[in-house]
Design a protein around this nucleic acid. Structure first.
Lengths: 241, 241
DNA sequence: CGAAGACTTGACTTGAGTCAAAATTAGTGG
DNA sequence: CCACTAATTTTGACTCAAGTCAAGTCTTCG
């Protein structure tokens, strides 16, 4: 009835075609639990630029990122903006157990989400501690990343910030670049120059100028303004401060 | 035998005198669990400036902050430093489930810790999901705080950064300032100007100048260089950007 | 094809950093 | 308790990295 085999044919139809199932939070669920959860999930598609959740909105659903990149931002009253996180597949989205999230989520590229109503997920978490453990691991990783980024924001020069951003994107979106033995990378930037500026605490103009400098130095090639190649990742890394 | 009454006389002697027991992670433990855990805990005292854990050191113990303030820092190869977090009582310390923490912890004031060996705590977490849930809540709060701070680091002016820092300390260390109806606050800064600079991504000199400006504007009074009073917290808050 | 948005480049300004020195505070031993 | 030293903090003069303002170019897409 509940054999713990994730390749079991009991796997819900909706989940069988899910490419990130084993990597995301669903990886810890057995077919029975997956089935219970999948009764409530719904896959949604969103165009680039679409608002996925807003500050001060009560949280009614969580989601897994299945494809694309989501940017998390905060804003001051006067309009100054800061990107506080990027979520790639198979990241979990949404402030667990929070009243409101104090954060805006927006599709940075075209995005596919697997949405779960808040109550359904929290029920499963309460019943199955392994799931909370899996989510804990992701939250801890996000905290590590946030702290790395605090270092970048507080102490690096504009040149180092831009290099750090490109290195981050290269290692998160070019699947090849993950392997230790890969030297080069090629990728599309999921963010506009304005977003990159908001991520790095810089202006559009400064981001643009620093990208130009990296291009002239041969560290990167700008194939198209959003399409970048990095011939030598180590060389880029050495410019991250 | 195991009545769930935290005022029960079964409470271990070590824990009976612990002021933060109900607020920290131990608040979710019943006397039996508290007893099991307390067999492994040890209270340690540390002077200001003492290194509590180092980058790249394998994590062998976790701890609860019982008194004082701990600062968490990261450093680049060339010595540039960034404070990435402050832990106040009754915060939990240590990167759960991590191999090494990539972070240095240092006593910012004289500090009292309640240390738990890694294995003992992880065993209890595995046996008792409520504990992991309680720790999850803290990690989520730390992530919220880290993201708030990213906004401060990336988008605020030096004046706003210093005001934000003072507001943070006022609301975290002056017990009076927590209540909604309190207007004023008085506190000792747990950090030197150099540490404040490392927290805010500023130099010592800029921190000092901005503090002087706030003093001249009457927003704060500098009783002694480390002892501050804030006559009107709302006025300070309005300068946080 | 034309218009709107995204990106780059240049000239100039400014906020925060750097360097230097003085003033204040904290720590130590006699 | 005081004197002396070391560390921390403040203040000032000057510099420079990044921001601002303004054109101009390149993309995208109806």
């Amino acid at each position: 009835m509940s054999r713990i085999d994730i390749h079991n044919s009991d796997t819900p139809v909706l989940c069988q075609s899910c490419e990130i199932r084993h990597k995301g939070m669903c990886g810890v669920l057995d077919p029975k639990q997956l089935l219970a959860l999948s009764k409530h999930t719904r896959i949604t598609r969103h165009d680039r630029g679409e608002q996925l959740s807003t500050e001060d909105t009560p949280i009614t659903a969580y989601a897994n990122v299945m494809r694309g990149v989501v940017k998390l931002t905060k804003m001051l009253e006067d309009g100054r903006q800061q990107v506080v996180g990027l979520q790639f597949a198979p990241d979990f989205m949404g402030r667990l157990f929070g009243q409101d999230n104090q954060i805006t989520a927006e599709a940075a590229s075209d995005v596919e989400l697997c949405k779960v109503p808040r109550a359904a997920l929290e029920k499963l978490i309460a019943e199955y501690p392994q799931l909370e453990h899996r989510l804990m691991q992701q939250v801890l990783r996000e905290l590590d990343e946030a702290r790395d980024w605090m270092m970048t924001l507080g102490r690096k020069s504009a040149a180092e910030k831009v290099a750090s951003f490109l290195y981050l994107i290269a290692t998160h979106t070019d699947p090849q670049a993950h392997q230790a033995n890969t030297k080069s990378a090629e990728f599309d930037l999921p963010l506009t120059r304005a977003d990159i500026g908001d991520f790095l605490g810089l202006t559009i103009e400064t981001v643009s100028r620093q990208m130009t400098k990296l291009r002239i130095a041969g560290v990167i090639a700008i194939v198209a303004s959003r399409h970048i190649t990095v011939p030598d990742l180590e060389r880029l890394k050495s410019r991250c401060g």
